[in-house]
Design a protein around this nucleic acid. Structure first.
Lengths: 105, 105
DNA sequence: CTCATCGTTTGACGTGCATCGAACTTTAGC
DNA sequence: GCTAAAGTTCGATGCACGTCAAACGATGAG
């Protein structure tokens, strides 16, 4: 039985929280991988692809920050965590933001 | 004799620095006022309109952070500082970013 | 030249954050 | 039931950042 971890509603999105989350290089790397690849996906797979040299507590912390900012949805399935980008919600509230931040040039 | 204060070239723009600058509410308020109003403009006028309750050293610090991120150009004219948003440079490097962040909804 | 004004720099203070190791929780496999 | 595996939580640590008061230029007015 998959459970969706707590996340903010679109109405309560806070741009300060969102930009702070995206400002951190490691978190932005995770988001970039997520944004480009297929979803939903195991968060460990993304973490591996992003290839940050960080411990698992730190990775876990970063995923939590992204989730609490409203950037991703996390679903617990067994021992794994399946994540998706909340594209629609972000686009509804801050159109073009994810594309501008996560699209390399 | 107006002097342009030191600023990064477009090539050396750093998204981490830019997002960190925009993540701070006071700085983003300054940017929003700048982005909307006529330019170039006296930075003190913008600071007044933004109506942050901050000391002048702090305001000065925030303008410096914005400038060093590449978000604004500052020209010293006498005792005043005239600022403009570097729209073109930002658009060239991160299309849609300023609009997404500074356009209220 | 003198002085008041605008802004910056410096130094200090408190807070927040990224990071890790260790301990804990939950789940899958046997 | 055990045990191993995947993530999370907790506590501690070090560093970065926002903030202000005080001191310091630089400039315009008289």
């Amino acid at each position: 039985m998959p459970r969706v971890l707590p996340e903010p509603s679109v109405d309560s999105f806070d741009l300060t929280v969102i930009l702070s989350a995206l400002a951190e290089p490691g978190r932005r790397a995770l988001m970039t991988e997520l944004y480009r690849g297929p979803e939903p996906i195991d968060c460990a797979v993304i973490a591996e692809k992003a290839d940050l040299g960080l411990s698992s507590p730190t990775i876990s912390h970063h995923y939590r920050v992204l989730r609490e900012a409203g950037l991703i949805r996390t679903v617990a399935e067994g021992r794994k965590r399946i994540v998706t980008v909340r594209r629609g919600d972000m686009e509804a509230r801050f159109p073009g933001l994810l594309s501008a931040v996560l699209t390399e040039r």
